[in-house]
C-alpha cells in the first residue's frame, strides 16, 4: 500500500499488481488498486488530456488544442 497524490486527490492505493515504485511515479488506479505504471511522457499526455476534459466540461472550449499537443503537432 502507498499514499498517492494526483489531480487534487490523495488516496491510499494497493500496489500489489505493479510492485513497489519510486516516489514520483505516476500510476493509473482503479478502485484504489494501482493497475498500471505510466512513463513520464504518458503521464504528461494523460494529465493534459484530463485537464482538457475538465476545461471542456466547464464550458471552456476556446483553445482546447493546448491540452492535446501531441495530437495537434502530428502531420495532417
Amino acid at each position: 500500500m502507498a499514499w498517492c497524490e494526483g489531480r487534487g486527490e490523495r488516496r491510499r492505493l494497493d500496489l500489489a499488481l505493479i510492485g513497489a515504485q519510486p516516489e514520483g511515479t505516476w500510476v493509473v488506479a482503479f478502485r484504489d488498486v494501482a493497475r498500471q505504471v505510466l512513463s513520464e511522457d504518458e503521464a504528461k499526455a494523460l494529465n493534459l488530456a484530463l485537464d482538457g476534459l475538465q476545461a471542456a466540461l466547464r464550458g471552456e472550449t476556446a483553445d482546447l488544442d493546448a491540452y492535446f499537443p501531441d495530437l495537434v503537432r502530428r502531420d495532417a
Partner: peptide, 27 residues
C-alpha cells in the same frame, strides 16, 4: 459521471479522437 465526456472529441480529426479515447476512458 460527467455525461458529456465525449464532447471534448468534437472538432478533432477522427484519427486524433481515436487516439484520445483510451486516455479519457482508461478502465
Amino acid at each position: 459521471r460527467p455525461a458529456r465526456v465525449a464532447q471534448v472529441l468534437v472538432g478533432k480529426r477522427a484519427a486524433d479522437a481515436v487516439a484520445l479515447v483510451p486516455r479519457l476512458f482508461s478502465v
